[in-house]
Nucleic acid binder design. Structure first.
Length: 259
DNA sequence: AAATAAAACAACCGCCTCGCC
DNA sequence: CGGCGAGGCGGTTGTTTTATT
């Protein structure tokens, strides 16, 4: 048994798209818009699977795509977002106008991954490689705390040009570590400890969000700041905190959706 | 100049989610 | 409420291009 194929494979082309196929697809979508992908190939006169058409359009033919090399700013943003979201390429792409999830995924695997590895950073965990190997039992997310870390001092000599890759706003430099350049500088960001709230923060109605809420997951069972139990109005009006230089408003998980 | 390796890019595959019936 | 189908996503593979020997 098993799932039926998404299309009739015997009568569909595979592999690279030809100019003519591209033109047909573009012309059809210009005339009819993005509709039912399954029926589009037939309607457009293409011997392609609907999925293939969708992919081709989204990744290469869409007029709003930005082609060309990634900028340093884009690199930085991708690293930040990946540290927060993991391999959620579509969400990351949603924060990079004109870039696609496939493009970012490829770019990550071919460029950024290696860049981080050269600097001794585990691209999967964003932690120093040696530490990642040792601390396999330490997860970055638990029900009550979240830890995201960056290594900053393991950059190799040949990579000096990019050693400032992790921007300053991502790092809280420990003075002790600063004196010991051989140590890994690590940033641990956790939900602020409730009792450490500043009086003026309380007065101004400022609210400290747990990590779940900073990602817009106010209804999550992982919520530890009480937002989950609040009514939606007061929750939505809550004040976020600057997480990795990205305001929590930016980090509303739902707002990252492309849809 | 040819052969080979490495890197980059494009596309496919299978699974998951969500909406509709 | 469960089944089904379409769309979407992430992982992986295949192909092409570029660099190196």
């Amino acid at each position: 048994m098993g799932r039926s194929p998404c299309c009739e494979k015997a009568h569909t082309n595979k592999g690279a798209w030809t100019k003519e196929e591209d033109d047909r697809l573009i012309a059809y979508i210009r005339a009819h818009g993005e509709g039912c992908w399954r029926s589009l190939p037939k309607a457009a006169g293409l011997l392609r699977c609907g999925k293939s058409c969708r992919l081709r359009w989204i990744n290469y033919l869409r007029p709003d795509l930005k082609r060309g090399n990634f900028t340093e700013e884009e690199d930085e943003l991708i690293i930040k977002l990946h540290s927060l979201l993991g391999n959620k390429w579509s969400l990351i792409a949603g924060r990079l106008p004109g870039r696609t999830d496939n493009e970012i995924k490829n770019y990550w695997n071919t460029h950024i991954r290696r860049k981080l590895l050269n600097r001794g950073i585990d691209p999967a965990t964003h932690r120093p490689l040696n530490e990642s190997a040792q601390e396999t039992t330490t997860t970055t997310t638990t029900t009550t705390t979240t830890t995201i870390s960056f290594a900053a001092s393991t950059a190799k000599e040949e990579d000096k040009t990019t050693s400032g890759f992790v921007s300053n706003d991502m790092m809280m430099i420990n003075p002790v570590q600063e004196k010991c350049p051989d140590l890994n500088l690590e940033l641990r960001i956790s939900p602020p400890y409730q009792q450490q709230r500043q009086p003026d923060q309380l007065k101004s109605g400022g609210r400290v969000l747990c990590f779940s809420c900073s990602l817009g997951l106010q209804n999550s069972k992982d919520c530890s700041c009480g937002i989950a139990s609040m009514d939606s109005n007061s929750a939505s009006s809550s004040v976020g905190y600057d997480f990795l230089g990205l305001k929590s408003g930016v980090l509303d998980y739902r707002s990252l959706e492309m849809k």
